[in-house]
């Protein structure tokens, strides 16, 4: 994927983090802009029209979730949240408010770059392939066939729908609520154990070792992510 000239706005009140992100992203040929508060971030958004925003939730002047909602009221620019660990509730709230993904602090730059690519894939011209492949897993969407190392698996319709939903958002986190809503319906948004049981069964089918999942990754307290890069 070509990311040259993609404009990234980093909104974080920690100078060290901004500096680290700027250097790292510039070395990947992103064009990087910085803001240290929500107010400044908003001003810079209007000024530079970024293609991607990296937003720290713990800003001094605004509640992160509110800020995301405000941005979403007038812009669909891809947005990745940076958050410190053990605030799952906040992560889910940020995702529900319209963030496209999140990265937990402390983080490795490799992880952040992968999330950025997954999010950017939405807006950059790319071909929607009918067959999804990662590792030994192959999903032929038009034929509704799932193969693991060339061997066809038999999935229940629910399990297949879960997989299909995750493929649609490949590489990005899908919250429990979103999965339940899209696979079942709105009325099932809180039926977590339904999702858990089906996910557990799905893992037993497509993961060689369910205690070390390679494809269906858990985002604790938030949801699931389908790996899309080896």
């Amino acid at each position: 994927m070509k990311v040259e000239g993609v404009r990234v706005l980093v909104v974080d009140d920690e100078r060290a983090i901004r500096r680290f992100l700027t250097l790292s992203l510039q070395s990947q040929s992103y064009e990087v802009f910085e803001a240290s508060s929500a107010g400044e971030g908003l001003a810079r958004m209007l000024e530079i029209r970024p293609d991607l925003i990296i937003l720290d939730l713990g800003l001094p002047d605004r509640d992160g979730r509110e800020f995301i909602e405000e941005i979403r009221s007038w812009s669909q620019v891809p947005l990745i949240v940076l958050s410190v660990r053990d605030r799952e509730g906040e992560k889910v709230a940020a995702l529900d408010a319209g963030a496209n993904d999140y990265v937990t602090k402390p983080f490795g730059i490799g992880e952040l770059l992968a999330r950025m690519r997954a999010v950017l894939r939405q807006i950059l011209p790319g071909q929607e392939e009918p067959v999804f492949r990662v590792g030994a897993l192959e999903v032929d969407l038009p034929r509704r066939r799932v193969l693991l190392a060339g061997r066809e698996l038999s999935l229940t319709p629910t399990e297949y729908d879960i997989l299909k939903t995750l493929i649609r958002h490949r590489g990005k986190v899908v919250t429990h609520g979103q999965l339940l809503q899209q696979v079942w319906s709105d009325a099932y948004r809180d039926e977590r154990h339904l999702l858990q049981v089906n996910m557990s069964n799905l893992r037993r089918k497509i993961e060689p070792d369910p205690s070390r999942p390679r494809y269906l990754l858990t985002e604790p307290g938030v949801g699931y992510r389908l790996r899309d890069e080896e």
Partner: peptide, 30 residues
Amino acid sequence: TAPEPCDPAEIVAHALALMGERLEGRPVET
């Protein structure tokens, strides 16, 4: 605590993922 139904396999997987490089190649049988 915010208990919710969890798959034990998922808990084990997450714990192993958190351990990550600290395991330094030590085998863990699950």
